[in-house]
Design a protein around this nucleic acid. Structure first.
Ligand SMILES: [Mn+2]
Ligand SMILES: [Mn+2]
Ligand SMILES: [Mn+2]
Ligand SMILES: [Mn+2]
Lengths: 217, 217
DNA sequence: ATATTATTTTAGACAAGCCTAAAATAATAT
DNA sequence: ATATTATTTTAGGCTTGTCTAAAATAATAT
């Protein structure tokens, strides 16, 4: 049996290892999990014993195949539930993440397969993130941060950061949704801010914002 | 903040106090919660401190108004989720209880109100049990056990026990669903079994079964 | 009224998951 | 190469919710 805490650690390790390409370090994980490094060390020992991760002292952790399966299953559930909340219950995209953080831990294979079917087997969630299939296969996205585009470049928004409600409300207001095309007009080197156009309207985006909008690579 | 364990205790106390009419005793609760009496004593001290129950040493516990609110909120969630699983996801009525035991602990006022609306504000769950409204008001049912009917009596099934999957499959097979009329043909005094008719078909029911079918009083 | 039995509470312990403070190790700067 | 700094681990402790065994209390039988 796997606990809620263990599931959350595995999910977090998965996300962090997608971001950076090396082993996930204790401090990174502590930061992401909102705990202390000592607590992380405790937990990674347990996860290592259970063979969900491989762990080299002082050099961080990596998911095993077994651990990846768990992580992707939790992510699948999270994204299916977010889709349900938006598509069926009429939540807005900035209200779903917190609830999905709870729902992702419900243990029932049958439930999640039925839900998937009920939703018409969606491929992406309301924030544009891909939904892993039953076997944990996930579509590797060809995506980069908007922040990395050069002035003059235009690209389609594929996903946005899902966990910041404030940000999502703002993105909604300026029409920055997955599927929309965004064009970089100017980019200020010293603070990384940029002027962009969406739907023929112009906006100034801080570096912060432009790093949380993902566009087609 | 109230924990999952506390919620389950309060729910259990509510159900037990509906059954018997006196205070809920430590041993009853231990039996229902599948724990030991010592654990129950620990927990009822906590619940008493938090004023969810009133507790007199050696004489059992009673829910306070505050405790009843929590219990009914959990029961509301449980029954709405069961309804969702059957009505929307196509579960059968014998598959939903276990999953609802998990879903009933999801914390989100908005979620449960949206779900209620999505389901069309149902009044009863798939097993015929009444769903408390937002304010915790629940329709007091005029119901008795089928076991208490005398030969010749006929009455409408209003609810069945929801937590025994085997029983529910059997009830489904013989057509014993809420809304159906059931007539007692004969009753064997020595073991409490009875012969009944449903949909003009005859069946022999054990005492066990006849105590888990509730009919109009 | 007293002895026996059943129920409940207390005492003490344990696992999970977290914490702070101190020690160990690795990375970096001189 | 050595000293300083940053990171990670260890040590020890806390809370929640559980357990077993023993003590206390209540209920029942004689
Ligand atoms: Mn999310
Ligand atoms: Mn999302
Ligand atoms: Mn149920
Ligand atoms: Mn039910």
């Amino acid at each position: 049996m796997i606990s809620l805490a263990e599931e959350n650690y595995l999910k977090s390790i998965y996300h962090l290892s997608q971001a950076g390409s090396q082993s996930v370090l204790t401090n990174e994980l502590a930061e992401a999990m909102n705990t202390k490094a000592a607590s992380v060390t405790d937990m990674i020992k347990k996860l290592s014993t259970k063979e969900f991760i491989s762990y080299e002292k002082y050099y961080g952790v990596n998911l095993t195949t077994k651990g990846k399966v768990v992580a992707l299953s939790v992510i699948r559930k999270h994204r299916l539930w977010e889709t349900f909340l938006v598509e069926k219950l009429g939540f807005s995209w900035d209200e779903v993440h917190e609830v999905a953080e709870q729902l992702e831990h419900i243990q029932s294979k049958r439930l999640i397969e039925k839900l998937d079917e009920y939703l018409g087997f969606p491929k992406v969630d309301p924030h544009g993130d891909p939904i892993p299939d039953t076997n944990g296969k996930i579509k590797a996205l060809q995506q980069v941060m908007l922040a990395s585009l050069k002035p003059g470049a235009a690209s389609m928004i594929v996903a946005v950061k899902d966990s910041d409600s404030q940000l999502l409300k703002y993105l909604d207001k300026i029409g920055a949704r997955p599927g929309k095309t965004i064009k970089v007009i100017e980019r200020e080197e010293y603070d990384g801010s940029m002027e962009v156009s969406i739907n023929n309207q112009r906006f100034f985006l801080s570096k912060e914002v432009s790093e949380n909008i993902l566009v087609n690579a």
